[in-house]
């Protein structure tokens, strides 16, 4: 199969690049040193396309397309960093910040948080939308991990890693829209979960301080998501 993959050429930010035809715009961009911001994407997990940070312009297509889920095609002309995209990304990130209660100063992931760093990356100086300030619970019932909904951005990396890599599917999302929330089993305290294997992968793929190890103080929770591609590969070898 793999031998029959065609090589195609396309343009990313005015640069001609070659790619295999089953690759995504994001993969090709990365291979060629073009950085596209992402939040929900994580190498090793099925892409979701929900965070919208990686949207790009493709000539001839009126709507913006997520780079993480759009496969390249011959002659495609992609723009990843127009002024309009920069502005929209900043706006999207502001919506992220306005949704829950992200108080970096007192967060265990302070300094290691992808959301926090993304604000710097896209030059978001402040949030000009009103904050929604929802009341969110902190689930500290598990003896090793803590789930703090205040910091959750619903990227579903934890849900995907729990299902796709660990295979226990303890985590999922309940409700919908602005009410959506990560749950464990039947929306019960994590500590009562019978399906959780305590593997901790969810904690390490979480981009923010929503999932942390118990006992971590402000700025102590660094994550080790770099293990994930390795785990994915191992799984693929097994199956």
């Amino acid at each position: 199969m793999s031998s029959s993959v065609n090589i195609i050429t396309l343009t990313i930010d005015e640069k001609q690049v070659g790619a295999r035809e089953n690759q995504t715009i994001l993969e090709v961009a990365r291979e060629n040193g073009v950085e596209i911001p992402t939040m929900c994407e994580l190498k090793g997990l099925t892409p979701s396309g929900g965070c919208r940070m990686c949207v790009v312009e493709v000539a001839g297509i009126p709507k913006l397309l997520p780079a993480c889920m759009t496969t390249v095609s011959e002659g495609m002309v992609v723009t990843t960093n127009s002024e309009r995209l920069k502005k929209l990304r900043k706006n999207i990130l502001e919506l992220f910040f306005s949704e829950r209660n992200h108080i970096c100063a007192v967060c265990a992931s302070n300094g290691f948080c992808e959301l926090q760093l993304m604000a710097q990356k896209v030059e978001m100086s402040h949030v000009h939308y009103p904050y929604l300030y929802p009341h969110c619970e902190v689930d500290a019932s598990h003896n090793r991990f803590v789930l703090d909904h205040n910091r959750c951005i619903l990227c579903t990396r934890c849900v995907r890693v729990c299902d796709e890599i660990e295979g226990s599917h303890t985590l999922d999302i309940k409700g919908r829209g602005i009410e959506a929330q990560v749950i464990t089993d039947m929306d019960q305290p994590w500590g009562d979960s019978e399906t959780c294997t305590l593997c901790g992968k969810c904690v390490h793929v979480c981009p923010t301080g929503a999932l942390i190890e118990r006992g971590m103080a402000v700025g102590e929770m660094s994550k080790r998501k770099q293990l994930l591609p390795y785990l994915t590969q191992m799984r693929e070898v097994k199956t």
Partner: peptide, 10 residues
């Protein structure tokens, strides 16, 4: 999975 059932139901 339980969480999936609950997720769908809600």
């Amino acid at each position: 999975p339980l969480s999936k059932v609950y997720g769908v139901a809600t």
